[in-house]
Simulated assay, not measured.
Amino acid sequence: MNDARPRALVTGASAGIGKSYAEHLARTGHDLVLVARRADRLETLAAELREATQAEVEVLPADLGTDDGVDAVTARIDKGDTAFLVNNAGYAARGKVTELDTQALAAMLSVNIVALSKLSASAMRSMTALRRGTIVNLCSGTVFMRLPGNAGYGASKNYVMAFTRHMQAEAAGTGVRVQLLVPGVIATDFHEIAGNSLDNFPPERVMQPDDLVVASLRALEMEEPVCIPSLPDIRNWDNYVAAEALVAKDSSHDRPAPRYHGA
């Protein structure tokens, strides 16, 4: 790696949002480590990026639903030269709670929660030691919704939101930036894989992955720790946080609230 070029590691890099991150980061001066299950797609993308940019591009095929896959990626991060981590890999296994395929649920949670947590922990250790670095964790706009059939996936992304916000608190003063990115509906194959279709969404609700990534990178420049690209007024997020604080301050007292007292 050229010392002037920081290295970014992108998971789920073979298509969609991850591919868009890889393209934008390569064009803006990063060397890359591309992670996904599909080695052939990674090799094709790597060749394209090497030709189009000055980036060194390393391909790391790994299934983040397996211990071996997660271990391979954390070992790569533990080398200490990852300056930018994009935790993009994830998918949706949907179904009403009474009808859930529990094996499919467990497999999804392994990727969406366990893998993201382990990769984040590895990156935080390395970056904190160097007092610099950036971590972007992909969440979902469904964290603000209660949708039948979405309990497992929605809960996994609520975990990502909570985990990332705790990371942000711990990163304060360390020189490490941690971004929570909250996409809405993005024009990728995510929905087809989850058994849905982009045709079910009005066009005005569907964002292109390049626009999402540009917003994320711009939010980093603006020092906005939570990026909700579709949100017109960031004060709405501030109000959400303020409402949390109102509940938090009264969430633990020595007596139940008056409404629970007998008549």
Rank of each mutant, 00 (worst) to 15 (best):
R5K: 11
R5M: 07
R7K: 15
G12C: 04
A15Y: 00
E23N: 12
L25Y: 01
R27Q: 14
T28W: 05
G29H: 05
V33M: 01
L34I: 09
A36P: 06
R37E: 07
L42S: 08
L45Q: 09
A46W: 01
R50K: 14
A52G: 03
T53C: 08
Q54P: 02
E58V: 10
V59T: 14
A62P: 13
G65M: 05
A72S: 15
V73A: 08
A75N: 11
I77H: 01
I77K: 04
L85P: 09
N87G: 11
N88G: 09
A93P: 00
R94F: 07
L100W: 06
T102L: 14
M108F: 03
V111H: 00
I113H: 03
V114F: 04
A115K: 01
S117E: 02
S122W: 02
M127Y: 12
M127G: 08
I135E: 04
N137E: 09
G141S: 15
L147S: 10
L147W: 06
P148E: 13
N150T: 10
G152F: 03
Y153R: 00
K157I: 09
V160L: 03
A162P: 03
M167I: 10
T174H: 04
G175D: 15
V182I: 14
P183Q: 01
G184N: 12
T188M: 03
E192M: 10
V206F: 00
P209Q: 01
D210V: 06
D211W: 02
S216A: 15
A219L: 04
P229F: 02
I234C: 04
R235F: 01
N239V: 09
A243P: 01
A243E: 15
A245H: 14
A245P: 07
A245D: 15
V247N: 04
A248R: 14
S252V: 14
H253L: 15
R255F: 15
P256S: 09
P256K: 00
H261F: 12
